[in-house]
């Protein structure tokens, strides 16, 4: 996990600290951006934007709002969803879906050389918690989180009643919260 002190060093203009931050977070952020955008080229562009924004705006980070990793993930997801929407507005077809996004991920899959044992354990715990959800709940959460769809858009996409979609997301998130609570109770994410 990323030490908040690393960000404090970056605030002071420490280039080495910034390099370290990249090494510790780039695999995760790349995975996330690729899952959302589905395009390697676009993912790289996005990551470049995100890290430059971190370099400039790192002073805005406040530990009271979450861990450094949570901040980076929120920022990356937010920027990626913006790109996805901008692409949709320009009339381009979204290339992401569960199936389509799986192919490039498999090619590059493998642990990051900077990944700690705690990271590996966390990945296993989260992966197991997500796959243990009913498929419909998992799908509804992923459509919201990785494709930026509102519950109304998800209901239209799946041709399901709005209430059903809301319930699926709520139940899925609630179950994940119960299963993974210890992950941030242990201090990793709080």
């Amino acid at each position: 996990m990323i030490d908040p002190a690393l960000l404090a060093r970056i605030v002071k203009g420490d280039q080495q600290a910034f390099s370290q931050l990249y090494d510790q977070s780039s695999t995760l952020l790349h995975t996330l951006a690729l899952r959302i955008l589905g395009s390697r080229e676009e993912t790289e562009e996005l990551l470049q934007d995100v890290y430059l924004e971190v370099w400039r705006k790192v002073s805005r980070y406040d530990i009271g709002r979450g861990t450094p990793v949570a901040w980076l993930i929120t920022l990356t997801r937010s920027r990626a969803i913006d790109r996805l929407r901008a692409r949709g507005a320009r009339g381009q077809q979204a290339t992401t879906s569960l199936e389509q996004s799986a192919a490039p991920q498999v090619r590059d899959s493998g642990p990051s050389p900077f990944e700690t044992q705690a990271d590996q354990e966390l990945r296993l715990a989260v992966g197991s918690a997500i796959t243990s959800l009913p498929a419909a709940q998992q799908q509804a959460i992923e459509l919201a989180y990785y494709e930026g769809l509102s519950h109304m858009e998800i209901a239209a996409r799946l041709n399901q009643p709005l209430g059903t979609v809301k319930t699926r997301i709520k139940l899925g998130m609630s179950k994940l919260r119960e299963t993974l609570r210890h992950s941030w109770d242990q201090g990793d994410f709080e």
Binding site: S19, S26, Q48, D108, A129, W184
Partner: peptide, 30 residues
Amino acid sequence: EYQSLAALLPFGLVQSQPPRSLKARIMAAR
């Protein structure tokens, strides 16, 4: 709690590493 959970979700994805050249581009663009 839910936001902490949401920030955990990408850990469940199959990891994909960025190309080595990306870091150099970013460091240069700073």
